[in-house]
Amino acid sequence: MNEERELAINPIVQTSVQHNTQVVSNIRNLTASLFGVAAGTLGLESYPGFIFYLIGTFIVSGLVFVFRAEGKPSEYFHRPLGDLWGGDVFSGLSSFVLTWTLFYGLVRA
C-alpha cells in the first residue's frame, strides 16, 4: 500500500527502466565472457573459478555505480540492490563457463 502510494506520487518511466536493464545486461554479457577468458588462462578450477566470476561482476557493478550511475543508483534503478549489484549475474554465468572451459582447454590442456 505504501509503495503504491509512493509510485502514485513519484511515477516511474517504464521505457527508462527497460533501457537501464538493457544497458546493464549488455555490460554483463560482454564482461562475463571476458572473465571467462581470464579464468581459463589462469587455470582456475571449480570453486575458485566461480569466486573469480563473482569478484569480477562485483568490480563491474562498482564501475557501473561510479561511472554510469554517478553514485546515485536509486535515480536509475528501481531496486538498486537487485537491479544494479545483482542484476543479470546468473544470466552471464553461462557465457562465463563457456569461455572459461574453452580457454582452459586451449591454453592448459
Partner: peptide, 8 residues
C-alpha cells in the same frame, strides 16, 4: 556503454 536514463 550508453548512458543510463533517470527512471523517476
Amino acid at each position: 556503454s550508453q548512458p543510463l536514463k533517470p527512471i523517476q
